[in-house]
């Protein structure tokens, strides 16, 4: 569930088919994942999940696995509750 939502956001932001985003996805194997889009991606994840990453995390979340790991820590109940509907 969480992984799906992350894939959806990544697909939307990077402009790639979600199905092509594997657990091993990194800027190294997704051409569209450049530094500008990386910032868009981080901001989109924050907007989607209603959270704010810490200063040093902005640049560190550079793989699907790191993003998922971070979000799972931040949102332990993610698989059971609905996201905040108020944006």
């Amino acid at each position: 569930m969480l992984a799906e939502r992350i894939r959806k956001v990544m697909g939307d932001v990077l402009g790639v088919d979600q199905a092509t985003i594997s657990d091993e996805a990194t800027p190294g194997n997704i051409e569209q994942w450049d530094s500008l889009r990386h910032m868009n991606l981080v901001l989109a994840l924050e907007d989607e999940f209603g959270i704010r990453f810490r200063d040093n995390q902005l640049e560190q979340l550079i793989s699907f696995r790191l993003i998922e790991l971070n979000l799972r820590e931040r949102l332990p109940n993610e698989n059971t509750i609905e996201p905040d509907a108020n944006d």
């Binding site: 956001v9 697909g11 939307d12 989607e48």
Partner: peptide
């Protein structure tokens, strides 16, 4: 109107 999520905006804008 409810504001769309940023990622949805990017996808729809592309469309």
């Amino acid at each position: 109107m409810k504001l769309l999520k940023y990622s949805e905006i990017l996808a729809r804008n592309r469309e």
